[in-house]
Design a protein around this nucleic acid. Structure first.
Length: 423
RNA sequence: GGAGAAAUGGCAGAGUGGUCGAAUGCGGCAGUCUUGAAAACUGUUGAGGGUCACACCUCCGGGGGUUCGAAUCCCUCUUUCUCCGCCA
């Protein structure tokens, strides 16, 4: 969420910038500023009342000490009204804070100046593309056919055990999946990211910290018995490792990577675009997370983009990079680059990574701060990206590496797989 | 799952109703000394709100209560530790 004092200072600039998202927030901003003034006024009233009653309490204490109990008792009576007042003001304050927070929750992050205006994915800006799109013959199959032909993934078994969107990987399919996880983790740790294994269930505070709650409640699986949520991405547990921290600036940047399964309800999804591995309720992903000094965060974002590029280059997959337009930009993000790999047999681009800078938007909710060189405590910038999401990379490999006689394995994966062909 | 103990500042650890935001030690920062460093010594050192700046307010695991006044008493929740049971 945004910080009120930033909104106060940059009111017009913020209203203007949010137009890129297709939003007119001028009224909301006015409401926020009004709610904030109300909050501060109420706080002042409460503080003054408490100050008064603190003074009385001290006096009463001294009077009792010196034996002047009668005077003390007179003072005691005076405090009862103050007590009532402070109780009432406290309730008013709680309400004022809640009103303000609820308003703040509705305002998305301010898009970076590089974010192009636009309403949907068609307006995203292609900033880079690389790799040759193979020309396949007419016999080329989509990955779900290949998975069946070579017995790599069994979607029906998943339906039997759990339901649609929970595939079962078998044999070389399972091995290839595991190879990719190891390969990604190795690439990330080589690049300096520290590997973490984190819980796959998180509590409500964590889900709130990274912004899944309150807005996206319906997207997560909720374990009601223990009031825990299955993680939709490793971003949630990994970023929350640092919730509430006040880090010395010398400790920045903090860089983490982690593999987790991800669980998404994907309510309302249907049709051809969700076939095979294209969209699942459970999938694997290796994530990278950075906590950065605000002065370095955009350099860091560029570094993450380069890092993902290198991986895709090694895998020799044709891909492109999109800079998301205002209409497609995630609620919490200031600038996002999506990576898409070309799915030859489906003749479409599949998103395999999304790399974002959230600036202080997440850190504000997380209360994730650092002590800067000047001694001041400031909110850190958080960034994250997939490196990479497994299913669609797998789909890309199966489709792009298929031949008449089998599927080749990208060279860099052969040591991880222990085989160089699926046939 | 059963029984007991505990939760205090970056860490360790005092504090059981009245100048306690909190002793002390370690750590951190600044200085003295030193060619430099170490050691020693001196000073300083929590967070949030609020203010032009002060003042002032809040915070001793979370929430609630008693009291003029709570780190301190009561209730409740959570977590940790010890013992027992179960277990990959």
């Amino acid at each position: 969420m945004l910080q009120v004092h930033d909104i106060r200072a940059n009111k017009d600039a913020y209203i203007n910038a949010l137009k890129k998202r297709g939003l007119d927030v001028s009224e909301d901003i006015e409401n926020i500023l009004e709610a904030d003034e109300n909050r501060r006024a109420t706080q002042t009233k409460l503080d003054e009342t408490l100050a008064q009653s603190n003074t009385f309490s001290k006096e009463i204490g001294m009077l009792f000490k010196s034996g002047e109990t009668q005077k003390a008792n007179i003072l005691k009576e005076k405090t009862s009204k103050l007590k009532e007042d402070s109780k009432r003001f406290q309730e008013e304050l709680n309400a004022a804070v809640e009103t303000l927070d609820n308003l703040l929750y509705t305002i998305p992050n301010i898009p970076h100046e590089l974010v192009p205006a636009g309403t949907d994915e068609n307006d995203n800006e292609e900033v880079f593309a690389e790799g040759d799109i193979p020309t396949l013959d007419n016999e080329a199959l989509p990955h779900w056919e290949l998975a069946k032909k070579y017995d790599l993934i069994d979607f029906e078994l998943g339906v039997k055990v759990t339901g649609a969107g929970f595939p079962v990987y078998k044999g070389k399919g399972a091995r290839l999946q595991r190879a990719l996880i190891s390969y990604f983790l190795d690439k990330n740790t080589e690049a300096g990211y520290t590997e973490y294994q984190v819980p796959h269930l998180v509590n409500e505070d964590s889900a709130r910290g990274t912004g899944q709650l309150p807005d996206k409640e319906g997207q997560m699986y909720h374990v009601t018995g223990d009031d825990l949520y299955l993680i939709p991405t490793a971003e949630v547990p990994v970023t929350n490792l640092f919730r509430g921290d006040l880090l010395p600036h010398t400790q920045l940047p903090i860089t983490c990577t982690g593999y987790t399964p991800c669980f998404r309800r994907e309510a309302g999804s249907y049709g051809a675009h969700v076939r095979g591995l294209n969209r699942l309720h459970q999938f694997d992903k290796v994530e990278i997370v950075r906590i950065e000094h605000p002065d370095n965060s955009y350099k860091a974002l560029d570094g993450m983009v380069e890092h993902v590029k290198n991986i895709l280059r090694e895998l020799k997959l044709p891909y492109r990079i999109l800079r998301l337009c205002g209409g497609d930009l995630g609620f919490t993000s200031a600038l996002t680059y999506d990576f898409e790999v070309f799915s030859t047999a489906q003749d479409r681009w599949l998103e395999i990574s999304s790399v974002s800078n959230f600036e202080t938007f997440q850190a504000n909710r997380l209360k994730l701060r650092f002590k800067d060189g000047d001694g001041k405590n400031k909110l850190a910038h958080t960034l994250n990206g997939s490196a990479l999401a497994l299913p669609r990379v797998l789909a890309g490999i199966l489709e792009n590496y298929q031949t008449e006689n089998g599927i080749n394995i990208p060279d860099v994966l052969v040591p991880y797989c222990g085989f160089d062909r699926i046939d």
